[in-house]
Each structure stands twice: as structure tokens, then as C-alpha cells.
Amino acid sequence: MNRFLSSATKKIDAKGRVSVPAVFRTVMSRQGIEELYGFQDFVFPAFSLGGPDILDRYEKQIATLDPFSSEAHSMSLLIHGGGSFLKLDGEGRLTITDFIRDYANLQDEVAFVGRSDHFQLWNPSAFEEMQRNAREERMRGAPRPARNGETG
């Protein structure tokens, strides 16, 4: 498995550390990720984490813009001003800094949420609500399943 999939809720200890789910650590190991780049998500109240390539991807996008444009400044503020590098300790734990805690509204638990090439840290109840809303929205837009013997 080379993608961050699934979700798990973990307790934050008294020192502000949380164990990264083993399945996420496995993906990090397979991808050779030793240092994580994290940033405040642009849409959700979550903190996104991935390998340094995620920062490279956004910087390449910024480089295509006029460096004096408001779009380039906005992207830089989001990616550079809203991000930081993080490392896991020897026991696979991540320190939940005040920067992360405040943005994602974390208390004593954090939901780890896989997003394919990166993962996110969410307030567990905010994640549950957002996932429920996404599911309901998807179900409203999805075609009605066929019943016994019906065809589409």
C-alpha cells in the first residue's frame, strides 16, 4: 500500500504527543518519508501532512504565477505561512503543537484521515460531521439503486 487510506482516532498524551497509526507509518516508510510537511488545509478545519513532495508540488504551482500577483501572495501565505516541517519521534509519535491544535480545534483526541497522497489531522467530531455531510450529499446526487428485477 502506497497511499494514506482509512481513518483512526487516537488520544493525545499529556505532553501533546500522539501515536501515528501504524498503517500510516508503513506508507511513510515505503515512500521514504522521514520528515513531514504539514499545512493548514485550505477548505477544511484540518491540518494536512505529507512528504516534502507535497510542498514541492505547491511551490511549482506558485512558480507558474506572476510573483507580484495577489494569487501568488495568497498561495504563499497559505503554504509557507500556514505550514511547518514535523518529524515523528523514535516511537512513531507526532507532537501536536499549538499551531496545529488551534487550527484544527484539537483537545484530547485527534482523527487521522487518509487522503491518498497525504493525511489530515481533524477534531474527531468535526470529521464525523463532515464525513456524514459528504455521504448525504453524495447519496442525494447518486442515482437510485435498482430494486428486485428493475433495470436502470
Rank of each mutant, 00 (worst) to 15 (best):
residue 149 G to L: 14
residue 26 T to Q: 14
residue 117 D to M: 04
residue 50 G to W: 07
residue 100 I to M: 15
residue 139 M to C: 00
residue 63 A to M: 03
residue 36 L to G: 04
residue 70 S to V: 10
residue 24 F to S: 02
residue 74 S to H: 10
residue 51 G to V: 04
residue 45 P to M: 00
residue 30 R to L: 14
residue 26 T to M: 09
residue 140 R to W: 01
residue 38 G to T: 04
residue 25 R to H: 06
residue 18 V to I: 07
residue 90 G to I: 01
residue 115 R to G: 01
residue 62 I to N: 09
residue 88 L to T: 11
residue 84 S to L: 11
residue 116 S to V: 14
residue 111 A to E: 12
residue 117 D to F: 06
residue 143 P to F: 06
residue 97 T to N: 10
residue 19 S to G: 01
residue 90 G to E: 13
residue 5 L to C: 01
residue 151 T to K: 14
residue 112 F to Y: 08
residue 55 L to M: 08
residue 109 E to G: 02
residue 3 R to Q: 11
residue 52 P to L: 11
residue 130 M to H: 13
residue 65 L to C: 02
residue 56 D to M: 06
residue 104 A to D: 07
residue 71 E to K: 15
residue 74 S to W: 07
residue 4 F to H: 03
residue 137 E to C: 03
residue 41 D to F: 02
residue 17 R to S: 05
residue 43 V to M: 10
residue 130 M to C: 02
residue 133 N to V: 03
residue 149 G to H: 10
residue 26 T to I: 04
residue 139 M to G: 00
residue 112 F to K: 09
residue 61 Q to W: 04
residue 89 D to C: 07
residue 117 D to I: 07
residue 98 D to E: 15
residue 2 N to H: 11
residue 40 Q to K: 15
residue 40 Q to R: 15
residue 9 T to S: 09
residue 19 S to H: 08
residue 142 A to H: 09
